[in-house]
Nucleic acid binder design. Structure first.
Length: 488
RNA sequence: CGGGGCGUAGCGCAGUCCGGUUAGCGUACCUGGUUUGGGACCAGGGGGUCGCAGGUUCGAAUCCUGCCGCCCCGACCA
């Protein structure tokens, strides 16, 4: 494995690509815009998935699976939805290949053209709502709380590993309710679940807010978002939860008989997070030495490195340490490699972001101790071997908290207020980060600001104060400040 | 799709301007030895349709024509 990664200061974007590659998270693939997620990257996704899945189930949801392909006609049933996704759909037109009569390998068999073309799902609202029509007859069938773990395809023009790929993995929740209020509560509740996951597990602070009409999901009445700030001062939309009103119910004619024997359309939500979270995780915590992972999502939390190399005496002590850690549910790897020297291994494990490294040599064993190094601060300290399990457990909690605190203080330092356009542009160009400013509430102003500064309204924070002010662009009246940033 | 850049060993590159033995370097990989508390050293070894297809030439990684692909910046987006 290569030794050097580009520093963040030199080229942030290259730094990111280097981390993805050299920490062994993903490789490019022969297919444009698609990546191979390698075992280590996938292990992180599995940790995220398992935790989120638990949170969804704890809030009453169940998993199901719907088809990858969607009949083309479905997509056009909800007008805004089709407008939002039509430009980035992969389309299946034929079902068969044949040998080229001219001898140039394989060609599409023109005889095998499909009656109705199929869309590879960019999201599953349409096929799911088409199915819900048959599942929902009575208010007693509601609420219907379903989640699916799946891959989706959006034909993006520019891609970056994890942050934006043509195919990506995600979960999408699709719920149906008998009242508007209940659906809105569901969307808000999931929004809260996402925020808790981001902060408590990813150690990534997020702002909870609502999207403006312009930035809303195609077909939604309200889109809630969690917005995170990356180390280069750009914002990342990390998860969204949508209140869809009755749009999809009407488009797919999904009705139920209420307890008052009235036919009504159901109310809907949908919500999702994707492998993009891994990109957010990387850009929130990692440094010029490599990946930094929060202990709660690290596939391996502790690695034990025998020094200078494995031998029976050291390995037997290492096994005992590992047993004590495993008793506490800590995932631990004992390095059994006898080829590389310790210094090489230290650098490798730092590159992979393993939160805690234990160095164990004869000298340590004589003193009944080991050398413990934490990835987040790179500090090293001796730990006694007695009650090592408890000490490491406390340390892992401390690392988790420290990463969150560090990210929060970065965000605080990179959140500014602007009272006019000059200040606004100055902050964006020279400092980056979130810029809090008054906005007149019109899409027109929002688009002008985007055009002139490349900054978008990330969200209207849920906890934004009502206050009189004037829009930084138009000078018109504003009732609250909103959060702007340049974003991924 | 616009503007830049690049295709030579797994990865990173030199060689191309000005054609000429067997295509080279670093790293990674394999073998042996000495090493080992922060990215070791020595010796030996394997690995290449020089992006593809034509053309010019006694001779092409190098010159000409066409094509393909990738990366970066922008518009679009989770």
């Amino acid at each position: 494995m290569a030794k050097e990664i580009t520093s963040r200061e030199e080229n942030y974007s290259q730094w990111y690509l280097d981390i993805v590659k050299k920490a062994g998270l993903a490789d490019n693939s022969p297919v444009r815009g698609c990546m191979v997620i390698k075992p280590y990257g996938y292990a992180i996704w599995e940790k995220m998935r398992d935790q989120l899945d638990k949170m969804f189930k704890d809030t009453g949801h169940v998993n199901a699976y719907f088809p990858l392909f969607i009949p083309k006609s479905f997509l056009s049933k909800e007008a805004e939805h089709v407008e939002g996704f039509a430009k980035e759909c992969a389309v299946v037109t034929h079902s068969r290949l044949m040998a080229d009569p001219n001898g140039n390998g394989l060609i599409v068999d023109p005889e095998a053209k499909l009656e109705e073309e199929l869309i590879v799902r960019p999201t599953s609202e349409t096929i799911i709502w088409n199915t819900y029509r048959d599942w929902i007859k009575s208010y007693r069938d509601l609420p219907l709380l379903i989640n699916q773990w799946a891959n989706v395809v959006r034909w993006e023009m520019r891609t970056r590993p994890f942050l934006r790929t043509t195919e990506f993995l995600w979960q999408e929740g699709h719920t149906a309710h008998s009242t508007s209020e209940e659906a809105q509560m569901e969307a808000a509740m999931i929004h809260e679940v996402y925020a808790r996951f981001a902060e408590d597990f990813m150690a990534m602070p997020v702002i909870k807010g609502a999207k403006t009409a312009n930035e809303r999901f195609a077909g939604a009445l309200e889109t809630y978002t969690i917005e995170a700030l990356m180390q280069d001062g750009k914002a990342l939309q990390a998860g969204t939860s949508h209140f869809l009103g009755q749009n999809f119910a009407k488009a797919f004619d999904v009705t139920f008989l209420s307890d008052k024997n009235q036919v009504e359309h159901v109310w809907a939500t949908s919500w999702g997070v994707s492998t993009r979270l891994i990109g957010g995780l990387i850009m929130t915590h990692s440094d010029d030495e490599g990946l930094v992972l929060p202990p709660k999502l690290a596939p391996t939390q502790v690695v034990i490195v025998p020094i200078p190399k494995p031998d029976p005496e050291i390995m037997s002590v290492a096994d005992k340490i590992a047993d004590q850690l495993k008793e506490r549910g800590i995932s631990v790897l004992i390095d059994k490699d006898d080829k590389n020297r310790p210094g090489f291994k230290f650098a490798e494990y730092e590159m992979k972001g393993i939160p805690v490294r234990i160095g164990l040599g004869k000298r340590d064993i004589e003193n009944n101790q080991c050398e413990v190094a934490r990835r987040d601060t790179k500090e090293k300290m001796p730990f006694g071997l007695d009650n090592i399990g408890e000490q490491i457990s406390v340390l892992l909690d401390d690392i988790q908290e420290n990463l969150f605190a560090r990210a929060k203080s970065y965000r605080a330092e990179h959140t500014s207020e602007a009272s006019n356009m000059a200040e606004f542009v100055d902050i964006l160009d020279n400092k980056g980060g979130f810029v809090v400013a008054h906005w007149d509430g019109t899409t027109e102003t929002e688009l002008k600001i985007k055009e002139e500064t490349k900054a978008t309204i990330r969200c209207i924070a849920l906890d934004a104060l009502e206050e009189e002010g004037t829009c930084i662009y138009s000078g018109k009246k504003s009732t609250k400040k909103v959060i702007f940033a340049r974003a991924y």
